[in-house]
Design a protein around this nucleic acid. Structure first.
Lengths: 97, 97
DNA sequence: CGTGTAAGGAATTCTGACACG
DNA sequence: CGTGTAAGGAATTCTGACACG
């Protein structure tokens, strides 16, 4: 069956204009955070960026941190750490919900 | 807070090209099913259709039914009935998960 | 009835650059 | 460093219609 399990949150299907509306960020800002390695959208065959709901949430956090004067470098490190924690969690077979 | 609860499934954010890829249906088919009142995308201010993951799933079911020779009228009635059942469920405060 | 297509226009997105600071 | 903008081009989407059946 070509259906996703339940990963609506991680499927990259939203284009930048909609992400801009959901986050309140400009296209410029969203693309810049990508160049700073904070988010990793996928691309359609023709090069259009596609984001997930998870990306949208990360973007909102990024915006909050930047308002507080945190640099993109620091934000990147924080996101990396969290990523690793998630990896560890996934490796443990319990707590599916 | 301008965030959604957890309704990634129902938020209308996917444009028709992506829906076409996810479902394997043509733009024409997807728009036609809308004209037949089977799906109800939202529109951006400029008129671009936006679909949810839930819409994508409904579209896949529609495609399956059509392959079996079911008419859009019948499909519409079936979807309506299911809608009503969901309404009833929502009115009962238990079983959040 | 359900779907394909060519047609013309409008809206979206992309990249690289200049600018400010 | 983080963000705005004008620039030109490419890709996307929209509508109404003709076509087949």
């Amino acid at each position: 069956m070509p259906l996703q399990n339940h990963a609506y949150k991680y499927k990259k299907v939203i284009s930048i204009g909609t992400v801009s509306e959901l986050t309140g960020l400009s296209h410029r800002q969203i693309r810049y955070y990508e160049s700073r390695k904070l988010i990793f959208p996928e691309r359609s065959k023709t090069g259009i960026r596609k984001y997930s709901f998870h990306d949208v949430e990360i973007l909102i956090e990024i915006a909050n941190h930047l308002e507080e004067g945190v640099w993109t470098n620091e934000i990147r490190e924080e996101l990396k750490k969290r990523q690793n924690n998630h990896q560890i969690k996934i490796e443990q077979p319990y707590n599916t919900c």
